[in-house]
Measured scan of single mutants.
Amino acid sequence: KELVLVLYDYQEKSPRELTVKKGDILTLLNSTNKDWWKIEVNGRQGFVPAAYLKKL
C-alpha cells in the first residue's frame, strides 16, 4: 500500500471527494490523474486534489 501525507485541509465539494485534515496519513488508491488522487479515509473512497497530498 502506498501512503500519502495531507499537506493542507481540504473540504469536500462533491460526493466524489473526501474531506481531509493537514497531517493525516492516508492510503493512496490511484494517482494516475495528475490533478486528482483517489484515497481512502475511514473506509470511504474518494478524490482529493493532488496538490494537497505528498507521497510517503
Results as ranks from 00 to 15, higher is better:
Thr27Leu: 14
Trp37Ile: 02
Gln11His: 14
Ser31Gly: 12
Ser31Trp: 10
Leu29Gln: 04
Asn33Val: 05
Lys54Gln: 11
Gly43Asn: 10
Leu29Phe: 04
Lys13Trp: 05
Gln11Leu: 11
Tyr8Lys: 14
Thr32Asn: 12
Arg44Ala: 09
Glu40Pro: 00
Lys22Glu: 08
Asn42Lys: 10
Lys21Cys: 09
Glu40Thr: 07
Glu17Thr: 08
Leu7Met: 11
Lys34Glu: 13
Glu2Tyr: 12
Glu17Ile: 04
Val6Cys: 07
Glu17Trp: 05
Ala50Glu: 03
Asp35Ala: 13
Ile39Gln: 00
Ser14Asp: 12
Gln11Ala: 11
Asp35Val: 12
Asp9Val: 02
Val48Asp: 01
Lys34Trp: 08
Lys38Pro: 01
Trp37Asp: 00
Pro49Gly: 02
Asn42Pro: 08
Arg16Tyr: 14
Asn30Phe: 08
Asp9Ile: 01
Ile39Gly: 04
Pro49His: 03
Asn33Trp: 07
Gln11Ile: 10
Pro15Thr: 10
Val20Pro: 00
Arg16Pro: 06
Val6Ala: 07
Glu2Ile: 12
Thr19Val: 06
Pro15Cys: 09
Leu28Ser: 02
Val4Lys: 00
Thr19Lys: 07
Thr32Lys: 15
Leu56Val: 11
Glu40Cys: 11
Leu7Lys: 05
Lys21Thr: 11
Leu18Cys: 09
Tyr52Met: 10
Lys22Pro: 03
Leu56Gln: 05
Thr32Pro: 04
Tyr10Gln: 01
Phe47Trp: 15
Val6Thr: 03
Lys34Pro: 14
Pro15Tyr: 09
Ala50Val: 07
Tyr8Ile: 10
Gly23Ala: 03
Asn30Met: 09
Tyr52Asn: 11
Lys13His: 10
Lys1Asn: 13
Leu7Phe: 02
Phe47Ile: 08
Glu17Lys: 08
Val20Met: 05
Leu53Asp: 00
Thr19His: 07
Tyr10Leu: 01
Asp35Asn: 13
Trp37Gln: 01
Val20Tyr: 04
Ile39Pro: 00
Trp36Lys: 03
Glu2Asn: 13
Val6Asp: 00
Glu12Val: 12
Asn30Gly: 07
Asp9Lys: 03
Val6Phe: 01
Leu5Tyr: 11
Pro15Asp: 14
Leu29Met: 08
Gln11Asn: 13
Trp36Ala: 04
Lys38Gly: 05
Val48Glu: 00
Ala50Pro: 05
Val41Pro: 00
Gln45Ile: 12
Gly23Cys: 06
Asp24Glu: 12
Lys38Phe: 15
Ser31Gln: 10
Ala51Asp: 09
Phe47Asn: 04
Lys13Phe: 06
Leu29Gly: 02
Glu17His: 07
Glu12Gln: 14
Thr19Trp: 05
Val20Ile: 09
Gln11Thr: 15
Gly46Trp: 05
Gly23Arg: 02
Val20Cys: 06
Gly43Ala: 06
Gly46Ile: 06
Leu3Ser: 08
Leu7Tyr: 02
Lys1Trp: 12
Val48Lys: 00
Tyr52Glu: 01
Asn30Val: 08
Glu40His: 05
